[in-house]
């Protein structure tokens, strides 16, 4: 049919004109572009630090220079203190975070989906989120003694509320239009939760997970610094506390650098790529 084929041509022309091929940037260029600014920032910070050190405003035992901290790191590495401590803390952090996700996610779904639950638990959850989780260390220590259970308790109390709050805000941000479309195409009850609600809430959920990890890591380190025992082993918190006990400022800075490095690495290697992947697929990044 002539009319039909001319319609097809107009349509194909419109489609071609209205969609532009997406520019593909090379992976290498992207990595360089995203890695360069933070490297420059770190170099600047170290430079300022070195200048302060060189000005001799404070004695060495109060403000060690970058090279002293670096050699302290090197010593710790040679003694074999670094990897076990990092592994120890990351292990506890991962287990605690995993448990927090397992508890925080269903809790967030309950609070987000059911009004009475939200009215009851919502404010408590937000309150818990603003409570410094280090406050839980003394009671957890009295209850469990210096055991991993005590660490996990503090981590859970820190991370679960922020993950649950992330789930709730993810659910709240789901456009009602999606739910209506879902209902119209036949998604009811569980099918609606699975095919519409959860995928639509995913970006908010991921943001909540990232924040949850930050809370978990902070809570863990707080407990590791405060509580030491043979049962808890040599963690990053232990390294830091140990440096304090031996009045080793360079060692303390080295331990802080390691704690920071783990936090940055987990964020940049896991959460940032995950979020970028999800947002990009939706045309949001």
């Amino acid at each position: 049919m002539a009319a039909d084929s001319s319609l097809a041509h107009i349509e194909a022309g419109l489609d071609a004109l209205e969609t532009s091929p997406e520019p593909e940037r090379g992976t290498l260029r992207r990595v360089v572009a995203s890695a360069l600014p933070p490297i420059v920032a770190v170099v600047l910070i170290v430079a300022v630090w070195q200048a302060l050190y060189a000005a001799k405003i404070w004695p060495d035992w109060k403000l060690p220079g970058p090279s002293q901290v670096f050699s302290s790191l090197k010593d710790a590495y040679r003694n074999g203190d670094v990897w076990p401590a990092v592994g120890h803390s990351i292990g506890h952090g991962a287990v605690g975070f995993g448990a927090s996700v397992a508890i925080g996610t269903p809790l967030g779904l309950l609070v987000g989906r059911f009004k009475p639950v939200r009215a009851g638990i919502g404010p408590i959850m937000s309150g818990l989120q603003s409570l410094p989780s280090v406050a839980w260390v003394p009671p957890a220590l009295m209850f469990f003694g210096p055991t991993p259970a005590m660490l996990y308790t503090v981590v859970l109390l820190g991370a679960v509320p922020s993950i649950a709050v992330g789930v709730v805000s993810g659910l709240d941000q789901v456009p009602p239009l999606y739910l209506r479309v879902g209902r119209n195409i036949g998604a009811r009850g569980l099918a609606s939760v699975r095919h519409v609600l959860l995928p639509a809430a995913l970006p908010g959920y991921l943001a909540g997970l990232r924040q949850g990890w930050a809370f978990a890591w902070r809570s863990l380190l707080a407990s590791e610094i405060i509580v030491q025992s043979a049962g808890l082993g040599h963690s990053l918190g232990f390294l830091l506390k140990n440096a304090q006990d031996t009045n080793d400022m360079a060692g303390a800075f080295a331990a802080i650098a390691l704690i920071l490095a783990v936090g940055v690495a987990v964020n940049q290697l896991i959460f940032v790529p995950l979020e970028r992947h999800v947002l990009k697929a939706r045309g949001l990044a």
């Binding site: 239009l177 999606y178 209506r180 479309v181 119209n184 195409i185 036949g186 519409v196 995928p199 639509a200 995913l202 999800v278 697929a281 939706r282 045309g283 949001l284």
Partner: peptide
Amino acid sequence: GRAALMFQESALFPWL
């Protein structure tokens, strides 16, 4: 039984 509904916005699910 069922009537399909279309809106001004396509309301396609962006994750699919």
